[in-house]
Write a protein that binds this DNA or RNA. Sequence first.
DNA 1: GGTCTGACCGGCG
DNA 2: ACGCCGGCCAGAC
Length: 116
Amino acid sequence: MAKSKKPSKATNFFSDVHEVARLIPRGRATSYGAIAAYLGAKMSARMVGWAMNAAHGDHSIPAHRVVNRAGLLTGKHHFATPAEMQRRLEQEGISVKKDKIQNFEKIFWDPAKELI
DNA sequence: GGTCTGACCGGCG
DNA sequence: ACGCCGGCCAGAC
């Protein structure tokens, strides 16, 4: 029961988001809402994106594999270069057209389904 | 210590 | 069919 509360200020939410994002397999992509729902806060999808902001500097977190539900690279502007996000996705075999992932539902990776 | 914003989502007119 | 608005949680000033 008493799980040792993390002395750290970092909330589990951020850590969780970072961890899930890191579990995203190569060549796949997921949405902020999917991660939020997996964490039990589908209504707080905004925070997921915000958590990604904290992921900056941590190259272990493939934030480029996280897009909005429409498959649009909404957060590409937050990368070192807006083209880097698309380039990374294409490098993994994901087709991106006009900042939008093609066959998004096909490569969609749902943590709640893939992860138990 | 209070206020605002933020890489979203879903519903309504 | 399209556009607008509110809601949610947490961090930063």
